[in-house]
């Protein structure tokens, strides 16, 4: 499969790499139809993220069509349209069951943090979504299934994978109330969506 790979500081290369495969029983594979570049991908690009190595597949803002599911996946099936969030999360631990899925206890063996797609060995070692195919663990919790009757193009819903809920959570978590004066520092994609 074709994939965007890390090749050291300020160098990405589109390469033919081995196809993503199902590993665990509740994994699924997604054929990616759209995938965005995030500001935090630039931290990888600048060589700031420890645990990256050459040929590592980058990307955590993808969506696509389910290509294959492991035997334990019941929530989605081949052919479903899905958006994949950047959080890798089991759906069963204390954090996942209390709306803290960005710090899932079962998604990262390397460190006491959550796991994220395409973000180095430090954050779980999951390959990223800037590729033709993506392996998605925890197929019964991670993917958001786009309702079959929804006629909405990829571009409108792609950012549900990261920057839109990230911006929304920022406002929500900060406890912004009507009438508050709010300063947003930053005018990148997340800053613009937060405003």
């Amino acid at each position: 499969m074709k994939a965007v790979t890390y090749q050291g500081k300020k160098k990405v290369e589109v390469k033919e790499v081995g196809d993503a495969k199902l590993i665990k029983r509740d994994d699924m594979l997604v054929r990616v139809t759209s995938t965005a570049i995030c500001g935090s991908d630039l931290h990888i690009y600048h060589g700031l993220i420890p645990g990256m190595y050459d040929d590592y597949v980058i990307g955590h803002e993808p969506m696509g069509i389910v290509e294959e599911t492991g035997p334990d996946v019941t929530r989605v099936k081949k052919g479903d349209r899905v958006i994949i969030p950047f959080n890798v999360a089991c759906g069963e631990c204390f954090f996942c069951t209390n709306q803290m899925e960005s710090q899932c206890d079962n998604a990262n063996d390397a460190k006491d943090t959550g796991g994220y797609f395409g973000y180095s060995e430090t954050y779980g070692g999951y390959m990223g979504g800037q590729a033709e195919l993506l392996r998605v663990p925890f197929g019964n919790f991670v993917p958001f299934k786009v309702p079959e009757d929804a006629e909405v193009e990829d571009e409108k819903i792609l950012f549900l994978s990261d920057i839109l809920p990230t911006a929304y959570w920022g406002v929500d978590n900060a406890g912004v109330k009507p009438g508050d004066t709010v300063i947003i520092l930053g005018c990148g994609p997340v800053g613009l969506l937060t405003q």
């Binding site: 958006i83 899925e101 710090q103 943090t113 819903i157 549900l160 929304y168 978590n173």
Partner: peptide
């Protein structure tokens, strides 16, 4: 306050 956003539970509502 800070951190990585827990995005999964926001997806249905934002969709």
């Amino acid at each position: 306050k800070m951190g990585q956003a827990p995005v999964i539970h926001y997806m249905p509502e934002l969709f």
